[in-house]
Simulated assay, not measured.
Amino acid sequence: MGDGVADALAAEPKTATTALPSVEEEPLTVTMTAQGVIFIQKTEVPTAELVTRLGAIAAGRTSNKIYLRADGANTWNSVAEVLGALQAGGFSDIGVVSDFGGTATAALVTSNSVADGLAAAVAASVTRAVQASPSLTATERDSFRLAVNSCWTIDLESVAASVVVKLGFTLNRDGTLDGEPRLLSSDGDQSATSTAFEAARRAILRCQRGGYQLPADKYDQWREVVITFDPSGMRLK
């Protein structure tokens, strides 16, 4: 390059480098209807796929902010499960809007306050249940667990055989399911989790038959059920 060109370039005025303004991301909202149906924005999402869908969304966003709008007809336990899914999906800055108790409330939830809030909510729910009815005996719990276990089959040669999944579901007073079983957690990848979840889901639905045989006077104790399906041994919470 000639000296003339070099001098011309050197003489050009220098301008400060200015970053282009970033486009503000659309606020992300998860809605939980009175019937427990979950929506991400306006798209209905099966509960079992919520963590996976959120993880994919989180990977493409710069903000970990999300809002949960829950109808007050939902129980605290069911809302707590969704909050846990939001965190598992990669969102720790959670804003919650609901109308529990008939009063509209809003809260900004951080990862620490989620844990505190869920602990308080679950503790309050457990306290109310204990006051309302006697606890299930060890025999009653084992009988229920074995009833579900009798319908649970899994291919020991498949990748799902080493996956532990935790499912939650709600029972009616006659022992039949109220809605579909929900995936709460898993320690496997998406494919293995899907297989393990379907096997557990089928077991719960198949074994209910005319309704699980549980003591009617203890309905508050078994209305909300959480079962861990572990190939090394099923656990009933």
Score class of each variant (00 low, 15 high):
residue 124 A to C: 03
residue 226 V to D: 08
residue 168 G to K: 01
residue 197 F to W: 09
residue 231 P to K: 13
residue 126 V to A: 06
residue 131 Q to I: 10
residue 183 L to W: 02
residue 22 S to L: 12
residue 121 A to V: 07
residue 117 G to F: 10
residue 116 D to A: 14
residue 203 A to L: 05
residue 59 A to Y: 09
residue 50 L to Y: 11
residue 50 L to M: 10
residue 48 A to E: 14
residue 61 R to P: 12
residue 82 V to L: 08
residue 195 T to D: 13
residue 237 K to P: 03
residue 148 V to E: 00
residue 136 L to R: 06
residue 76 W to R: 10
residue 69 R to Y: 04
residue 8 A to I: 12
residue 87 Q to L: 04
residue 172 N to P: 02
residue 237 K to E: 13
residue 40 I to W: 06
residue 44 E to S: 02
residue 3 D to R: 01
residue 217 D to T: 11
residue 73 A to V: 05
residue 196 A to L: 11
residue 110 T to Y: 03
residue 94 I to M: 08
residue 166 K to A: 14
residue 221 Q to M: 15
residue 57 I to T: 14
residue 109 V to I: 07
residue 182 R to H: 09
residue 139 T to G: 01
residue 54 L to K: 08
residue 46 P to D: 15
residue 113 S to C: 00
residue 10 A to T: 06
residue 82 V to N: 04
residue 201 R to K: 14
residue 60 G to Y: 05
residue 224 E to P: 01
residue 234 M to P: 15
residue 14 K to I: 13
residue 49 E to Q: 05
residue 8 A to M: 14
residue 237 K to G: 14
residue 40 I to T: 10
residue 79 V to D: 03
residue 6 A to W: 00
residue 148 V to Y: 03
residue 114 V to N: 07
residue 134 P to I: 05
residue 125 S to Q: 13
residue 39 F to M: 01
residue 203 A to I: 07
